[in-house]
Amino acid sequence: MKTKKKSAVLATLAWILAVAAGLWLLTGLLTPKYMTDIQEGALIAEYYKEKTDHDVVFIGDCEVYENFSPDVLWREYGVTSYIRGSAQQLIWQSYYLLEETLKYETPKVVVFNVLSMKYDEPQSEPYNRMTLDGMRLSPAKIGSIRASMTEEEDMLSYLFPLLRYHSRWGELTGEDVTYWFRRDIVSDSGYLMNVGTRPAENVPEGAPLADYRFSDVCWDYLDRMAELCAEHGVQFVLVKAPSLYPYWYDQWEEQIEDYAAEKGLPYLNFLELIDETGLDFDTDTYDNGLHLNLYGAEKLSRWFGAWLAENTPVEDRREQPDYAEIWNEKSAVYAARQARLEAERDAA
């Protein structure tokens, strides 16, 4: 009798394990891979594959992962850096990513792009997913999910992504099978390379707003980021990337300038440094001025690298073998990617 009971319990446990294994396999199959299309979705998770720490960490939205090239910072200044950015990354998502990053490493400088100050409430579920799904499970991730969820979303589907992506069974492609158990690295230290060129023409002026004041929620998260950096002895730098659109209002600029002055934080608005950086919006953007292409990003990074070397405690690590080995390897990948993308562009 006892043996019968024992075997029934064991059989039930075996079936529970089988269901769990099935759920794990199905989750892997049905979760979007972002390997060939909408690669932005893969950026956040790539950070965990990094082999070294970084002196500079960029935090922000597409204005950081499209506009700054960590490879240039390495090659020309020996600065190790990484971009923790994702599409339409909201300021609370940036805060929680910073909190999480500081658990893994303590950089010397954190660079935050201020465009997300314009959003004071959750925006879109697909963008939330691209930022949050890639994060490892942690209190920071839970906090970020809580702050980011739109009305239609729920925590459970973030913890068990199958609940969100189960309906993809009808859209599965070869990519889902190829990348079922692995992922390629699609970025270069968080930088998403684009070699196309589409000049900026007729950039629209910003429409007048009823209220130009940034919301208290955004100021609160900006304060928290500044405090977090101060607690960890990290220099906090504010930047506004040189994207011509979305329009950056003078009234917004004034508020950020006042804030930076009040807190004693460096603030660089690259829209006002176009000549200094040498950017040319006829050749250095791939989407009419929204984002820089590779050539624009390299120009901007070259200038910014010099600024970092002069104004922050970053080190030139090119002579340090541990770093040099890893970063030279990264540079080779970067160069190969550039060559491949340019060949594809020229063939098209």
């Binding site: 029934a8 059989a11 039930t12 079936w15 089988a18 269901v19 099935g22 759920l23 199905l26 049905l30 579920e125 239609e152 979303e153 589907s157 199958l162 609940l163 969100r164 189960h166 309906s167 069974w169």
Partner: peptide
């Protein structure tokens, strides 16, 4: 029992994948 457990396991997996629930529905 084993048929019943298999039946339940299949129902759980099938319902989770092919069920109409969540965002988009």
């Amino acid at each position: 029992p084993n048929l019943a457990r298999g039946f339940c396991a299949a129902l759980i997996l099938l319902t989770l994948v092919f069920g109409v629930y969540g965002i988009g529905y």
